[in-house]
């Protein structure tokens, strides 16, 4: 069975606590914003470590949307 295709990544700014774990795991996909929380800045076509980053979020603030 083919892997489901990732179409979007959302970081909930109300849940994010700025642990920056996602940025450490997937630095090409996440970046810290001025207010202290992370945002998805990557390319969904090159998901890579995005799933690992989502799993490691201590507050489950990263939501992955698959096709």
């Amino acid at each position: 069975m083919p892997e489901p295709k990732l179409v979007a990544v959302h970081v909930d700014p109300d849940l994010c606590v700025g642990s920056t774990l996602c940025i450490g795991i997937a630095p090409e996909s996440f970046a810290l914003q001025a207010e202290g929380h992370a945002a998805f800045v990557g390319d969904v076509a090159h998901g890579g470590a995005v799933a690992e980053a989502a799993q490691n979020c201590p507050v489950s603030a990263i939501r992955l949307v698959y096709e």
């Binding site: 606590v17 700025g18 642990s19 920056t20 202290g36 201590p58 507050v59």
Partner: peptide, 9 residues
């Protein structure tokens, strides 16, 4: 909050 956010939360 930030990088020291409680690991055990």
């Amino acid at each position: 909050h930030g990088i020291h956010f409680c690991l055990g939360a």
